[in-house]
Design a protein around this nucleic acid. Structure first.
Ligand SMILES: [Mn+2]
Ligand SMILES: [Mn+2]
Ligand SMILES: [Zn+2]
Ligand SMILES: [Zn+2]
Lengths: 140, 140
DNA sequence: TAAGTTGTTGTAAAAACTTGCAATAAGGAT
DNA sequence: ATCCTTATTGCAAGTTTTTACAACAACTTA
C-alpha cells in the first residue's frame, strides 16, 4: 500500500494531492497482472480505503490517465479498462473468443511518425486495440 | 427510407430479417455525413419508425457492426459512434479540443500485414482511433 | 393465402457511468 | 501547531447502456 507513496511528489509538483483513495487505486493497479475494469478496481481498492465510492474511482482513473500514470484501453466488449503506464505496448483482441495478445510498441513507431507528418498532429502515442481472429478461432 | 431495402437480400441470405426498425436505422446512417452516437441515431430514426426503442437501437447497431454493414469507432470522449462501412479509413482525435481528422487505410495496410505475421491473428481490419495534439492546440 | 418457425422487438428493470454541489481534508504558509 | 486555500471527496440524482423474457411479426413452406 505504501508503494503508492512514491507517486506523491509527482502529483504535488503539478499542483495535485495524494489521497488515501488515490493510494488505494494506484496500489491495486501496481499489483494487477492484467487490465482491470473500474468495477474490479472499485471492489479491490475499497478494501484498502473503506468509504471509497464509485464516482471517485471513475474520476480518479480518468485523472490518472490524464497525467499519464495509467493507460486506458478497450476490452473485447468495447469497455474501458486500466493498467499502469510504462512498458509501451498495444493489443490484438480476437473478435470471436475475446482472447488477447500484446504487441510491441516498436512495431508501430514508424507508423506514428508517418501519421504525424501526414496529419500535422503531434504526440501520437495512443494505446491501441486491434481486432482480428486468433489462431484457435481460425480452425473453425 | 426505401434505400435501406437494398440491404434486405444480404440479411436474408444469412438467415436474418429486414424490419422497419433496421430500415430506419440504416436510412439514418446512410444519410449521415459524420459519425453518430446511439442517442442521435435514436432521435432521428424514431421519426421514421415510431415506437422504436433505445434497447433496439443499441442491439441493432451491435448487430449491424457484427455483420460488417456499419463501423463502430470511439469518439474523443471514449464513447462509441457509428457510420456506414465501406471507404476504409481511421481517425486521429485531438486530446485537447476533440478535433478529428481521417486517415487513409492504405497507410496502415503494411502494419496490418506485419501484425498478422508476428501475432498469428488474421483478418485484422479494425477501424482505429489514434489520439494526438492537433496543429491548433500545439500553438498553446 | 394460411400456418408455422424463429429471429426481433418492446417492456421493465438492472447495471454501468456521469454530473452538480456542499462538505471535507491535503498541503503550503504563518 | 494552527490557519487557509482549494483540490478532492461523498452524496444524491441523473443519464446511458445492458439484460431477461414474453409478445410479436418477418419470412418460409405448403
Ligand atoms: Mn495493455
Ligand atoms: Mn470514420
Ligand atoms: Zn479467438
Ligand atoms: Zn486540438
Amino acid at each position: 500500500m505504501t508503494c503508492a507513496l512514491e507517486y506523491a511528489p509527482q502529483l504535488r509538483a503539478r499542483g495535485y494531492r495524494m489521497t488515501p483513495q488515490r493510494m488505494a487505486i494506484l496500489h491495486v493497479l501496481r499489483h494487477a497482472e492484467t487490465h482491470l475494469s473500474p468495477a474490479e478496481i472499485y471492489k479491490k481498492a475499497r478494501l484498502e480505503a473503506p468509504g471509497l465510492t464509485e464516482p471517485t474511482v471513475y474520476r480518479t482513473l480518468e485523472f490518472l490517465a490524464d497525467i499519464a500514470l495509467v493507460r486506458p484501453s478497450f476490452s473485447s466488449s468495447g469497455h474501458l479498462t486500466y493498467e499502469m503506464a510504462g512498458n509501451d505496448h498495444h493489443h490484438i483482441v480476437c473478435r470471436d473468443c475475446g482472447g488477447e495478445v500484446e504487441v510491441e510498441h516498436t512495431l508501430l513507431e514508424s507508423l506514428y511518425r508517418l501519421l504525424e507528418t501526414t496529419s500535422g498532429y503531434r504526440s501520437i502515442n495512443s494505446h491501441v486495440t486491434f481486432f482480428g481472429v486468433c489462431p484457435n478461432c481460425q480452425a473453425k
